[in-house]
């Protein structure tokens, strides 16, 4: 099974297909203010079932003995172009890679490299940029990535389709109220559950990234979750007073008293002055 997968992959990449991915879209605005502006934050997800691999980046071994379903901690990498090669465990770096792709890692980006299956079950590699822009107070960002050997799907939260017709290797994202949702994945336009349900804790101010991975044919479809935190915002304000009572409330009365007194004093003064003038 493993050998077959590798052979298939080898065939697919005999010509050393190199695809440059554009991962510049959605580079977060704050990136420019980061001290290490010439670096990027990169995580790697292994979403090819049944294939333990070694991952090489630019000729150096990045991840040895990388097992399916594993997501690495984020790594700081220098921005630039990386030639990524994925070998079956122990076959690199001189053998034929199971997957090879050149990936652009832009400065300041937070990205996830995903080794996964194409819709028809061939190993491939894609880079996704994780949206680290600010999330409004009280909200959570939900990103769903279809990286499974499966047809288009709908993603439902608490029974309601939130993302429709998502295809491999695309992503869909949105901001929802923070909290726990019961999510499942159904074949697009149907109620046929492909994955789930699973409880997702959508933490406020974070980006919860859900990968639908595996193979429908091999009946090993599954969800993998990655969370990027720290994009919270302060609320727009605290409306903690209504009537003005605590501010003395009767500013009007104070003004009224002042005015009445002033009028009285002025009036009397004026009258006196006139009287005096008259008297002289």
């Amino acid at each position: 099974m493993i050998a077959m997968t590798v052979r298939t992959a080898g065939a697919a990449f005999t010509a050393g297909i190199t695809v440059a991915l554009s991962v510049t879209a959605g580079v977060p605005a704050f990136a420019q203010s980061r001290a290490a502006g010439d670096q990027a934050t990169v995580s790697v997800l292994h979403a090819v079932p049944g294939l333990t691999v070694d991952v090489f980046a630019g000729g150096k071994e990045l991840l040895p003995d990388f097992e399916p379903g594993t997501l690495t901690d984020p790594m700081k990498l220098d921005a630039g172009s990386y030639d990524i090669k994925v070998f079956k465990d122990g076959e690199g770096p001189e053998g034929t890679p199971a997957i090879e792709k050149t990936v652009e890692v832009p400065a300041g980006a937070n990205a996830t490299l995903v080794a996964h299956l194409t819709p028809d079950g061939k190993p491939t590699l894609d880079a996704f940029v994780n949206d680290t822009s600010k999330v409004p107070a009280g909200k959570a960002r939900l990103t769903v990535r279809h990286v499974a050997a499966a047809p288009a799907v709908d993603v439902r939260a608490d029974g309601t389709a939130v993302f429709k017709g998502l295809e491999n290797p695309k992503e869909a994202k949105g901001e929802v109220a923070a909290g726990t949702v019961n999510a499942d994945v159904v074949l697009a336009g149907t109620d046929t559950v492909a994955i789930g349900p699973a409880a997702l804790d959508l933490a406020e101010g974070s980006n919860t990234i859900v990968y639908a991975w595996g193979s429908a044919t091999d009946k090993n479809l599954a969800l993998k979750t990655q969370t990027v935190t720290g994009m919270h915002s302060a609320p727009d304000g605290v409306p903690a007073g209504e009537t003005g009572q605590a501010a003395g409330g009767n500013n009007d009365a104070a003004l009224g008293a002042l005015a009445a007194g002033a009028v009285l004093a002025l009036g009397t003064g004026g009258y006196l002055l006139r009287r005096r003038t008259d008297a002289v």
Binding site: A257, G261, A262, L264, G267
Partner: peptide, 24 residues
């Protein structure tokens, strides 16, 4: 006149003070 004027000033001062006292 002077007495009335004085009363006016005192009155307004008292009122203002009274109102201020309602404030924190």
């Amino acid at each position: 006149g002077a007495v009335v004027a004085l009363i006016g000033v005192v009155l307004s001062t008292m009122l203002v003070v009274a109102v201020r006292r309602d404030e924190p």
